[in-house]
């Protein structure tokens, strides 16, 4: 079997374990596929097109599994995902053209690298700040502002900024699966923005897509994760087709990674029903900040011609992801045990 896949048993096992970690991450947060897998494959010596193509195909497969799992829990807004995809496609085209334009000026690598570092740091800081504010507010009551649904009831899982954006009713308006309403302009703008970032940075964009759905369109965090996964499925399919045409997808690598991620994605997706997101969001924010540092080190390795920075960058990236994965599993086990304690009194 290993001969058919073109992998040694050791490498196969490594990919299965790595896939499991990425799957947990992907299932829980709706992101984290390509920005973890691509550097790992590059470090292992795979050529860049093979690393990127195989990573995108793996993201597609994992997104299919995780979306199915979130679908079972009713956490995927297909209409929102479909509408966003139109904007994403246009944005990717604009982003890639921007990169080609910068390449003509000879500053593409520097600008793209700096933008990646700044963006990861900004999103990481946003999540960390939000999680810390929620913790402070917990003593005084509910940390999030309450938004009113169309039926008059209140939903407490929408950030204040999203509530404010939703209050500007610019037609045409569309109804989201949870009953709230959002302007088509907001949805298209978010899709276009996410696509622009994806095309510009050459990444899947889940780390932008999920926060954008949550903070700008204004869904619950669980729906943002599910809908982001659906977006990842569609963009992953496009990426897999594009790289598949070039014949650079290593199916052996994809299969081994999928074997682990299919289990991890089930556990990660299932954990969203048990684990309080507030317990993990702060770690997620810190992980993005560390990822920003890792990417900065990777850029420094190129500029200073010091490969050791590349290794440190990889260890930092995988180490922080492994830590957050362990935190999710730990909180999942705790939540299951707490459920038992509260069950007899319920």
């Amino acid at each position: 079997m290993f001969g058919l896949l073109g992998l040694s048993p050791g490498l196969f096992g490594l990919f299965v374990v790595f896939g499991f970690m990425v799957g947990v991450f992907f299932g829980f947060f709706g992101m984290g596929g390509s920005f973890l897998v691509t550097p790992a494959l590059l470090i292992l010596g795979y050529p860049a097109p093979v690393a990127i193509g195989s990573s995108m195909t793996f993201v597609f497969g994992t997104a299919v599994i995780a979306t199915l799992k979130h679908h079972d829990a009713g956490q995927v807004d297909y209409r929102l995902g479909g509408l966003m995809f139109v904007g994403i496609t246009v944005g990717i085209e604009l982003g890639s053209r921007l990169v080609f334009g910068l390449e003509v000026l000879g500053i593409a690598e520097a600008v793209v690298g700096a933008a990646y570092v700044v963006l990861l740091a900004a999103i990481g800081a946003l999540f960390t700040r939000s999680a810390m504010a929620d913790e402070e507010d917990d003593g005084a009551g509910d940390g999030r502002e309450r938004a009113t649904e169309s039926d008059g009831s209140e939903r407490d899982d929408v950030p204040a900024i999203a509530k404010r954006i939703q209050s500007y009713e610019i037609p045409p308006m569309m109804t989201l699966s949870d009953g709230s309403r959002a302007s088509l302009w907001t949805i298209s703008g978010v899709g276009g923005g996410v696509g622009l970032v994806s095309g510009f940075l050459g990444v899947g964009g889940g780390f932008v897509r999920m926060p954008a759905i949550y903070y700008v369109v204004g869904t619950s965090l669980a729906a943002a994760v599910g809908t982001s996964l659906f977006g990842g499925l569609m963009s992953g399919a496009v990426g897999a087709f594009t790289y598949g045409r070039a014949g650079v997808i290593d199916l052996g690598v994809v299969t081994a990674l999928l074997l682990g991620s299919a289990l991890g994605a089930r556990i990660g997706s299932g954990a969203t029903a048990y684990v309080d997101e507030d317990d993990v969001t702060i770690y997620f924010g810190v992980m993005l900040l560390l990822a920003s540092l890792a990417v900065a080190l990777g850029e420094a390795a190129t500029w200073l011609s010091m490969p050791v920075f590349d290794r440190i960058s990889f260890v930092l990236l995988v180490g922080s992801a492994l830590f957050v994965c362990a935190v999710i599993l730990y909180h999942g086990v705790l939540a299951v045990r707490d459920e038992r304690r509260s069950a007899p009194s319920a």
């Binding site: 195909t57 597609f60 497969g61 299919v64 399919a237 897999a240 087709f241 594009t242 790289y243 598949g244 045409r245 014949g247 997808i249 199916l251 994809v254 999928l258």
Partner: peptide, 9 residues
């Protein structure tokens, strides 16, 4: 070939 890869995955 690309569609075959997608089908396999």
């Amino acid at each position: 070939a690309a569609l075959a890869v997608i089908a396999v995955v």
